[in-house]
């Protein structure tokens, strides 16, 4: 068996995938134990038990100041901002990307503008957003939208523009007008690509969310991480980062599952 042709089975792939994660966890525990044997008060690599007790306070106990369960309040706030940002970005990507891809005149008019916006580093715009929208939720959502929408628009427009010319011609010979081509030819073929673009944008969206929360927020996962950093509270930071990773993986999985379910035709004949 050659390395390039040896494909693991379902079980094998699961075990192979789990192994590095287990090694990482085990390595951490060993390193943590080693540090604690030298200094029982070590804060840099907290023991799992320390993380559990620190998190229990945030998850199960009300904060004395605000009366909130901080972990859940943070999660809800961050997911709300993320959902708003992703939703607005996805909707605008669908609308703008569709007309940009399907209508050459619109592409000639707006294409350079979208490209110009896309090359600006979004974080550089954050001060402008804070000045314009204040320090509230709007600026944070706007950062996510500005950060990912141009990429999604360009990706979708490129995909639509690259649809075989024959499809458009064929639709016209079937009696379609431009609207009909957009509605029945371009739009349905744009949707699976939109899901794909959204999946790829999840990573950047989280980056912009955490950045915005780190700079100006009073609740949120990113806010909490940067707040407790002052106390070297690795026993909170590490579980929070793991929780963010878990949320991101769950979102990615949900998107890929629903794309397969909704657009079976786009995922090969294995339906």
């Amino acid at each position: 068996m050659r390395w390039v042709t040896a494909v693991p089975g379902r079980r094998g792939a699961f075990l192979l995938g789990a192994a590095p994660l287990l090694v990482l966890a085990l390595g951490y525990v060993i390193a943590s134990a080693a540090r604690h044997s030298g200094n029982a008060a070590d804060k840099i690599l907290p023991l799992p038990s320390a993380m559990v007790s620190a998190m229990a306070g945030l998850v199960f106990e009300q904060d004395r100041l605000s009366g909130q369960y901080l972990f859940w309040a943070d999660t809800l706030a961050s997911l709300g901002r993320l959902a708003a940002g992703l939703g607005i970005a996805t909707l605008s990507a669908l609308l703008v990307g569709l007309v940009l891809g399907a209508l050459p005149r619109v592409r000639a008019t707006l294409g350079p503008l979208v490209t110009a916006i896309a090359v600006i580093p979004p974080i550089a715009l954050l001060p402008i957003l804070f000045i314009t929208f204040g320090l509230g939720e709007t600026a944070k959502v706007a950062l996510i939208v500005i950060g990912i929408a141009p990429f999604m628009i360009r990706d979708l427009a490129g995909h639509i523009a690259a649809l075989p010319r024959e499809q458009v011609i064929k639709a016209l010979t079937l009696g379609a007008n431009s609207w009909g081509v957009v509605l029945r030819v371009a739009l349905p073929q744009a949707l699976p690509r939109l899901f794909e673009g959204l999946r790829l944008s999840l990573g950047p969206a989280w980056v912009f969310l955490i950045s915005a929360e780190a700079i100006a927020a009073d609740v949120g996962l990113g806010y909490r991480i940067f707040l407790v950093r002052r106390y070297l509270a690795m026993d909170v930071i590490i579980p929070y980062v793991a929780w963010i990773a878990l949320l991101a993986v769950a979102m990615d999985l949900a998107l890929s599952r629903s794309s397969r379910r909704l657009f079976g035709w786009a995922h090969g004949a294995a339906r």
């Binding site: 075989p164 024959e166 064929k170 030819v185 349905p188 035709w265």
Partner: peptide, 10 residues
């Protein structure tokens, strides 16, 4: 056409 005459999503 020789190819791309049918719509893959229908």
């Amino acid at each position: 056409f020789q190819r791309y005459s049918v719509f893959p999503h229908l």
